[in-house]
Simulated scan of single mutants.
Amino acid sequence: MTQSPIPVVVNGALGKMGRETVKTVAQAEDMMLVGAIDKNPAHLGEDIGEIIGCGALEVPVLNDLESVLVLATQEKVQGVMVDFTHPDSVYENTRSAIAYGVRPVVGTTGLSDKQIKDLAEFADKATTGALIVPNFSIGMVLLQQAAVTASQYFDHVEIIELHHDRKADAPSGTAIKTAQMLAEMGKNFNPPKVESSETIAGARGGDGAGNIPIHSVRLPGLIAHQEVIFGATGQIYTLRHDTSDRSCYMPGVLLAIRKVTELTSLVYGLEKII
């Protein structure tokens, strides 16, 4: 028997990542786009496919999350909500999806540690799978794994993340996650060599996990980029990942949609499901 397609709701459907996700889900044979949500009133009620230029999909843009989540629960297969919205709304969006029995795949960054913990507890109680993914790029997962390996041999490391100037949160969730992965090695990085001070507050970056400074750059022309720079006497080891097109995230998005249907709890990070 052919398995029923996975019903998918895209929240933030008119954003750059949302549009790319809509196109990708619409083309996936094992998925069915059942909802497109966006707070922008300009295209309310219009067909999302016609708006983004991939042909009519018979899915109107709506601005009421809960009414669309209901649609995702009416299919034979448990639905999935992909969220690319805003840090101010992502927590409530994710909690609402879990409450309705729709499995969230969250690409929006900006959730605090406490919010992630609360969502994990809520997902456990509901026995509902959830995925929070700071970065859907397979290349970034490989960079993080290489950084973890390098951290065994270097005691000094800093992270620089660079994004477009419309990104609302800083530092990026990817940079925070990278620092956390390095800190899990049990080392306290960057032991001080001198007693230093900042002439301008924040010049040395923000304090990430493991005493790892994180520096954020926001400029037009950028998409998403990250450097992890290790230093030791006589050498510098730099790992860098650059994004030139948002389509690079789509294999990770598809993987996350498929994997979250197999989960019964919250998982944080794409590397956990690869």
Rank of each mutant, 00 (worst) to 15 (best):
N211E: 06
D165H: 11
I138F: 13
G202E: 01
G208I: 03
S137L: 05
Q144N: 13
A147R: 15
P191E: 08
N188S: 14
R204I: 11
I160K: 11
K187C: 00
P213G: 14
N188I: 06
A179L: 05
D169Y: 10
P134L: 11
F122Y: 05
I132E: 03
E121P: 01
A146Q: 10
S151Y: 05
S172A: 07
A209V: 04
N135M: 09
A120D: 15
V148H: 11
A150F: 01
E198N: 02
P134Y: 05
N190Q: 01
L222G: 04
P213E: 10
A168Y: 08
I160L: 15
A146T: 04
K167F: 09
T199G: 06
P171I: 04
Q152H: 09
I200H: 09
I132P: 14
Q180T: 00
V133S: 09
Q145I: 03
V133L: 02
A126V: 08
K125S: 12
N211K: 14
A130W: 01
P213R: 06
P171C: 01
A120L: 00
Q180E: 07
D169P: 11
Q180I: 00
H225K: 07
R166G: 10
D207Q: 10
M140W: 14
I138V: 12
Q145E: 13
G129R: 05
S172T: 03
P134C: 10
K193Q: 12
K167R: 15
K117L: 05
G186P: 00
D165G: 05
Y153E: 15
K187R: 11
G205V: 07
L119D: 04
F122A: 04
H163N: 15
H164A: 14
V157H: 03
A170S: 09
M185I: 04
S197W: 13
Q152E: 12
G206F: 11
Q144V: 11
S197E: 08
V133G: 00
A224L: 06
G206P: 02
Q145Y: 12
D165E: 14
M185A: 06
L119K: 04
K193F: 06
I212S: 01
P192K: 00
P220R: 08
H225I: 04
I138H: 15
E184A: 05
D169H: 13
K177N: 06
G206N: 13
V228Q: 01
F154A: 04
I159S: 07
T149P: 02
P192Y: 05
